[in-house]
Amino acid sequence: MAWNPTVKLGTLLVASGAVLLVTDPVTPVVLWLLATGAALLLGRVPAGTLLRAQLALVAFAGSVFSSNLLLRHDGDVLAVVGPVEVTSGALAVATSFAARTLYLGTVSVLLVVTTDPARLMVSLHQHARVPATTSYAVLAAHRVLELLPAEWEAIRSAQAVRDPRRAAGAPLPRSPRALGTAVFALLVAAVRRAERTAIALESRGLGSGPRTTAHKVPLRAGDVVAAAAVLGVVAGVLLAGWWGGWLSGPAALTA
């Protein structure tokens, strides 16, 4: 998707924030379905990736659902499970929050799959006035991140073999102490690297005056139109709920 990443991030942030105060079940479900459709058709997110992400989200949503169902009491009692009464109001709110989780998670997947971090940082520098030092610091840190999993694995095994009682082939220790020491070693290595990277970046003239950009990220009228369209759809869903009478806000939580 050639959508300008800054505009995309801003738009999706607003589109996500829009459900913050919504507590009825219909609105987030509709938005979730729309987001899934957009991810598949517009974002070209592979169906398999999306499906796997949705399955992971379902566990999360399920927990949100059950806790809200059991910790709320409002409206008619629909069922009694052991000591807990399930009420109609709780069911509505629980469904709403579960659907909201699915919606936000889907938007997140859309963002991760379709955004190149380097392009995003360049675009944030160009279009959101993020200073060059900050965006290149983040990009350099991103390179550190690429090396983190290998570094983590190396530290974990290097520390494990220090134990003379370790049996050959034994899995790496998972005690909080073992993990803590490994996190600490990782952190020390990262801080050391940060200092060297800062020196290297500065020696290359970062932050020392006017600069050009080799590959500008374009910001076209189309980007803004797309943003308006997305926000229009979200607003439309909210307005439809308002006119149709099913939209409800945080007042429903304490009713």
Binding site: T134, A137, A141, A198
Partner: peptide
């Protein structure tokens, strides 16, 4: 700033 970014990443 680089330290902040690296801490953020870790």
């Amino acid at each position: 700033t680089v330290l902040l970014a690296v801490l953020a990443v870790v």
